[in-house]
Design a protein around this nucleic acid. Structure first.
Lengths: 160, 160
DNA sequence: ACGGTATTGGTCAGCATTAGTCAATAACGG
DNA sequence: CCGTTATTGACTAATGCTGACCAATACCGT
């Protein structure tokens, strides 16, 4: 019952893990589509929805004869770079939904564990609750407060 | 007597206990609603009111084709009586200083690690800051808010 | 060189499918 | 009787997938 998108995502992930040290893999869109019996644009959908910068990937491609698609895994050597990346992802405001998705991704990438994740979710939820029912803060302002709190928590972890 | 919400809650709990060590279960909202002969949004109510981070659960979901709802249980061996004790220690209000001292003690006793402690401290400090400089909350009230936040975070780590 | 053609990937709009939100209303419990 | 909790349904939002159409590049014949 797994969706085609997830199957293809997994297939690509396997390509990464096959070559231990490799930080990039190359594909041919049409070939891949034939393997999975779908239209080529399905591959674009997988890339657009799964191999995003938010999830730590970059995608390069070239059309025409000898065209290709190359997926690169983002890798930060310096902790500071990673903090900056997360800071940018969060931005000045963040919705509840975006925050939860980010935390799921961070846990997948093992940058936080489940206990840390739940602590962060409780803190965010508490802030939201207080802001909406107690102090009647505007939704925009609440999302700014959430972003600030989330960034502080992530920064503190990165330095720990 | 046996409200539908409680019945569904129990049903989901059984899914967890079926597989002793299972830490997550997957659902389809529509299916579940059909099983219990209710509208799908009833499921959301059950999740919102029963499977919260404060109670040690995280809920992930996805809409659209092949959508799902996944409930994760964060299960730990901190005894319930100990968490009750912590609840009492915190009480209805807590000062910044008392909180810090408590966290240090908890870390010494290895009930939380240094990263978890930092997360909690950052969340408390953020709440304090917001309360004092932004919303002009009275010191007493701030200490009550801190106590509530601290208790929620500690409970989320302890409840199965 | 030039230009046509084959080859390769990109975009977008639309349909089907699934879950979320919200506010009104009902039911419950003290 | 009142406040809290539970339930419903209409409306909204997100996701997966396809197919028609667009864009870029290499190769080959002249």
């Amino acid at each position: 019952m797994a969706s085609l998108t997830r199957v293809i995502e997994k297939y690509i992930n396997n390509l990464f893990s096959e070559v231990e040290e490799e930080q990039s893999v190359s594909l041919r869109r049409k070939e891949l589509a034939e393997i999975f019996g779908c239209v080529p644009s399905q591959i674009n959908y997988v890339l657009r929805s799964r191999f995003t910068p938010e999830r730590g990937y970059l995608v390069e491609s070239q059309r025409g004869g000898h065209g290709y698609i190359r997926i690169l895994r983002i890798c930060y050597d310096m902790p500071q770079d990673r903090i900056n990346h997360i800071d940018e992802l969060i931005g000045d405001t963040i919705t509840d939904q975006e925050a939860r998705r980010l935390l799921a991704t961070l846990q997948e990438r093992e940058m936080i564990d489940s206990r840390e994740r739940i602590l962060i979710e409780v803190a965010l939820r508490h802030a939201e609750e207080l802001g909406s029912s107690e102090f009647d803060v505007s939704p925009y302002r609440r999302s700014a407060i959430s972003a600030e709190l989330l960034k502080r928590m992530m920064r503190s972890l990165a330095l720990a």
